[in-house]
Nucleic acid binder design. Structure first.
Lengths: 135, 135
DNA sequence: TTCATTGCAAAAGTTTTGCACGTGC
DNA sequence: GCACGTGCAAAACTTTTGCAATGAA
């Protein structure tokens, strides 16, 4: 997606379109590998050397709150981000750390009467095909 | 569960039964609130002031690897631990941070041919009843 | 103009590491 | 006895915070 279209999309949803936010979103859209803040920062820094790490965190937080991105907390330490906001599952390889998308029906839990459910996530973990065959 | 029974359980599964590991597991079994490493450390320290934080991390890692505990990474930063290893969902309140268990059928994803699935997790987030009614 | 966002440095918080010592089996 | 676990301090990392300066609308 070109930056002008991202800017238009942001304005349409009353989301302040700063070049930094556009760059962060552009990167996550273009790299469907579920990058974390460090990877995003490293990349956007190349086109704008004055880009701050704080700004990456600010942008990611705002983008998630406004529904442009989804935080993926499958990995215990860092948070990964996904531009595909349609419901789907995430698989993480415990060997190489790679995260894969997969199709899964939305799960329906019971015993949550009175709770307001805002998000549902399905996380699998194990070995990806290449790591599985490595040993 | 008394400590002697935990020790017996560990030995049964060829899991070295040090008093520290027993204490950590005992705490997580007794407190079904999905504690994190800091909470566990704080508690076990009371009965043994020489208990090290490193040991808590070591014990938790080993206990997870041996299937005694489940790591809950629903929260982006710290890892929580659950002694209930039977399949169930976890709900986290984005307001108070409390984690609740709920029943949910095991999800069956598609498109993972060639992957070795070791674990499945279903995480919900939103507002718990009391936080929902707070505003 | 105005107020949200940015950028910097410093802090906070969790988890890991290296290594000597201690201990379960 | 020996391999494995423990404990300590320091390091590594991710993320947050405070605040002055900047810029989008």
């Amino acid at each position: 997606m070109q930056k002008e279209r991202i800017t238009a999309l942001f304005k349409e949803k009353n989301f302040r379109a700063t070049p930094q936010r556009v760059a962060v979103y552009d990167y996550v859209c273009a790299h469907r590998t579920h990058p974390d803040a460090a990877q995003i920062y490293e990349s956007v820094l190349k086109s704008d050397p004055s880009f701050s790490k704080t700004t990456v965190y600010n942008a990611l937080k705002s983008l998630c709150e406004s529904g442009f991105l989804i935080p993926v907390t499958i990995d215990g330490d860092k948070v990964h981000y996904d531009a595909n906001v349609d419901f789907h599952g995430h698989f993480i390889c415990t060997c190489c750390g790679e995260i894969y998308d997969f199709d899964v029906p939305e799960p329906h839990g019971s015993g949550l009467g009175g709770f307001k459910i805002a998000r549902k996530d399905v996380y699998y973990s194990g070995l990806c095909p290449s790591c599985k065959n490595k040993n």
